[in-house]
């Protein structure tokens, strides 16, 4: 190709990618270390710190909570987000423009402000249980991803197909499930994955919505790092990275990876 970028630019890009990858490699190395303190390169390989994760009950508990919250929050967000995304596209003319902006608000306002506001006005104000507050918070921060990704899928959906099905005698509600939804399947999967990972990794909202007995994994990691400086955290991190890789592998198999970059 005659328009190959300048070698200096290629060099910079290579360094940027090194900068992006190296720290993650280091975390993996530290997780495999045999020592009781964090070090890289690992001195003696062992999996003892992975075992340690499950021996510390706080980690065990928060892993379960995080997975529960992420799964439930994502499902609720899909439940309320899919109809909203559908309405935004199908009734584009009838619905006001600000409605689309409304659904982006949860990622537009600072997350940490949202977490604090939910704690102060909702949890403390109404005495709602912590778990419920946490679930509501996570549902809302993943809602924008759900609405946006599924809207993007619906934008390229030809609604005349739906009209054709209805003209052939299919009931509108049934048509949605038999015609519309299967055609935006890729968008729904992508939305689920993005939402799930976002929820699993969230810190800023969860920070305020944890209480006695209830915490999420990232908050627990944060607390652990501030007290101990051992490779357990590295192992948990690697566990989370594996989860991400697994999810990305699923995406790759179903949709192709560049899908996520859109």
């Amino acid at each position: 190709m005659p328009d190959r970028p300048h070698p200096i630019l290629i060099g910079v890009a290579a360094l940027v990618y090194l900068f992006l990858m190296l720290p993650l490699v280091i975390v993996v190395g530290a997780a495999l270390s045999d020592t009781t303190y964090l070090t890289f390169p690992p001195q003696g390989l062992s999996l003892r710190w992975f075992e340690n994760i499950f021996e510390i009950s706080a980690f065990r508990r928060t892993i379960v909570t995080s997975l529960q919250i992420a799964l439930m929050g994502t499902l609720i967000a899909l439940l309320i987000g899919i109809p909203a995304a559908y309405a935004l596209n199908r009734f584009r003319i009838e619905l006001p423009k600000w409605l689309g902006t409304l659904f982006v608000l949860p990622i537009l306002v600072p997350e940490i402000v949202f977490g604090f506001a939910l704690l102060k006005s909702f949890t403390v104000g109404t005495g709602a249980p912590i778990f419920l507050s946490l679930l509501i918070g996570h549902t809302l921060i993943v809602l924008p991803y759900v609405v946006r990704v599924i809207s993007a899928s619906l934008a390229s959906f030809d609604f005349s197909i739906e009209e054709a099905a209805i003209s052939l005698g299919s009931a509108p509600a049934k048509t949605f499930f038999t015609i519309v939804l299967p055609n935006v399947r890729a968008g729904v999967i992508a939305a689920f994955i993005l939402a799930f990972i976002t929820s699993l990794n969230d810190v800023s909202v969860s920070l305020f919505l944890t209480g006695p007995g209830i915490s999420t994994l990232p908050i627990q990691i944060l607390a652990h790092v501030e007290q101990f400086f051992d490779p357990t955290v590295a192992s948990v991190s690697v566990l989370l990275m594996f989860l991400t890789v697994a999810v990305m592998a699923v995406v790759e198999r179903t949709l192709g990876l560049t899908f996520l970059a859109k």
Binding site: L24, F40, N201, M241, L257, A261
Partner: peptide
């Protein structure tokens, strides 16, 4: 692109922790 997406999908705590090491 995948190599850029991956760190993005790794949590902020993990990524900050890496720099701690």
């Amino acid at each position: 692109i995948v190599a850029a997406v991956f760190p993005l999908l790794t949590g902020v705590v993990v990524r900050a922790f890496a720099w701690l090491i």
